[in-house]
Design a protein around this nucleic acid. Sequence first.
DNA 1: CGCTAAAGTTAGGCTTGTCGAACTTAGCAT
DNA 2: ATGCTAAGTTCGACAAGCCTAACTTTAGCG
Lengths: 235, 235
Amino acid sequence: MSLETPRVSSSAEEYLLTLYRLETSNERAGSSQLAKMFGVKAPSVTGMLRRLGERGWVRYQRYRPPELTDEGRRIAVRLVRRHRLLETFLVQFLDYSWDEVHEEVQQLEHTVSEKLLERIDIKLGRPRYDPHGDPIPGQDGRLPSHRLIPLTRLQEGGRAQVSRVDNRSRHLLTVLGEIGAYPGTSVTRLRTRRNGQLSLRVGRREIQLDGDIARLIWVKPNRAPVAMQARERGM
Amino acid sequence: MSLETPRVSSSAEEYLLTLYRLETSNERAGSSQLAKMFGVKAPSVTGMLRRLGERGWVRYQRYRPPELTDEGRRIAVRLVRRHRLLETFLVQFLDYSWDEVHEEVQQLEHTVSEKLLERIDIKLGRPRYDPHGDPIPGQDGRLPSHRLIPLTRLQEGGRAQVSRVDNRSRHLLTVLGEIGAYPGTSVTRLRTRRNGQLSLRVGRREIQLDGDIARLIWVKPNRAPVAMQARERGM
DNA sequence: CGCTAAAGTTAGGCTTGTCGAACTTAGCAT
DNA sequence: ATGCTAAGTTCGACAAGCCTAACTTTAGCG
């Protein structure tokens, strides 16, 4: 019920956000894995999950991986919005590069007021995607959706637009930054040279990428793109 | 010694900052007054002062008003820098008005990284004064100094530049904002009409101010400004 | 299908920061 | 000079987060 902002601590917010990210990528993590992500020890995680459970933000039973409640998810989505708007702002207005922006925002996202966030949103022209191509939830929590395929599923000779780059690999971001392959860039997939490697034309340059790197790049094909779309969920 | 940033909590920072502000305006406050300022009860203040004392940031003896150590003052000045840079940024880049900016920055100043602060400083062109005309300390902690007199000491007929406006009165800021009397504006003092009131010409407008309001406005006289400069410290 | 190693939890302790209730001190006013 | 009141402190308690050490549960492997 509470439309009042119900005082969520920074740590609690960080937990909910992480749980949400895991949920959307269909992963699940136990206490010790979460512990690693937060840089704390496992018992701290158990304790926090218990408290989050008491507040109704997480469904938690001992020895089971935790799940967000609707309320918890709502808080998390609000945070995703903050996070992505702030990233966009830092990149566009303060010359941050897309591979250094995450850490900074990690701090800020818990502190920035609704008012400031709104001004930033306005200043940016209410963007719908962040610098990595991730969709920015609206104030109502709705996400703009787009149908994308991983670069690895683009047929040889196919042309597509880079639309989203998984931001969990700084290495990938740096590499793509160097060749200027930001969301919006057009690429053409060339004949594959050797196994595992994948060739691309970006502008007038030609580059090779490892398969497991290429899988982190999502593209919007220009037309009739893909052989076996049915199996996409599988991976 | 420690050039390492020595982990100061947000609350501790807020205390040091407040103590510094009191110090520079020659006031001193006891526990219960501090308590009111922080929205906390007196015992909490005593506890915090004790901890700040243990860390060597404050000289504190029971029943005496606390004093900053050099180390404590250094931390405070760093915060003043953050605070004023952030205020300037919000006003110049995010359309904040100078009377609403303080609250926002109160949160942010403890969270923003050195890196972000540096980018903001660059973006602003390394400003030396904030929107209220308060000097922004450099990275070395030095404050640009300027000789100013309160508007009340400007002689009748005298012309001067508004240079600093005490930002502790939102009311004053709102009033001055309406007439556009920001730092940099030229004003002329007219003959005083009645006791306590003070007449000004700002642009082609003429306004009256109460004396205790006018005392919060600091100006740089254009020439041969003032009758009895000797007593300035007294008030 | 039971055993064991890994994963997870409980117990107990520490720090920061908060509070209310009860006590002490300072300093003014007679 | 003394005594009273307001300001300040101490005490004990609590919540959030974190830790280590010791325990329990799960689940995979033989």
